[in-house]
Amino acid sequence: MERGISEREPIIDVRHVCTRFGQATVHEDVSLAVYRGEVFAIAGGNGCGKSTLLRELLLLQKPSGGTIRLLGYDTAQLTEMQARAIYRRCGVMFQHGALFSSLTVVENVEAPLREHTRLSQALVRDIALIKIALTGFPLASIGKYPNELSGGMRKRVALARAVALDPEVLFLDEPTSGLDPISAAEFDELVQRLKHWFGLTMVIITHDLDTLWRVTDRVAILGNGRVLGIGTMQELSYSDDPIIREYFHGPRGRAAREPVWNRE
């Protein structure tokens, strides 16, 4: 899908962002860039400000300093119309799905289409069904309400809703948290397939090391209010930073890495 922007122009450009809540500093100086077509992960321990950064990227929260450019626009100077247009070009899958509990599965996936387009009812339904089918959600259950679904199924619906409008950028917040290893692996594969089908740029917030090894092109690791390291997982695994070393060479880090080493 060509949209007339050159390959290496960053889709997301975060420069010297700092975030404070009263006395507490979450980000001191965070800079990173995400390029078109790559799967970029933001990782780091609990409380390192991953979710806050995501909220800032999604215009849900203003950083205390620094600039964020999203799809070429400075997020601090957006008009309401521009923000709406940007939201149309971004898909978000929230950690717990954030499905609308008063709508059925299929209505949830239709919601963005209804909100942003003037297509006919039947066409909207068809597109929603195809998106639901692509995520592997059982089509017999599309009339159910979110509270009747298991956590894994809810994530699939959330993903289907996130890609309903064929976004350019897809944000995934902890896509594999709360999933059993088999479902998590399936979900990783699903994410890769979506990237292949739609040529998506993805930003994944995660601390699932399996996901990081399997899915991502580049990873930024946050800690102490800044970006401790940025690069491919291979590069990061040679990093000297004590926190990153701990991240990779702790017992879980080794276990996640082994299959990758064996494959090569």
């Binding site: 899908m1 060509e2 387009t117 297509l119 066409l123 597109i127 195809i130 064929d166 739609f198």
Partner: peptide, 14 residues
């Protein structure tokens, strides 16, 4: 066709 997404593909398929 300069750009095609799922929606366009569905219309075409119909």
């Amino acid at each position: 066709i300069t750009a095609l997404d799922t929606c366009g593909a569905v219309v075409l398929y119909r």
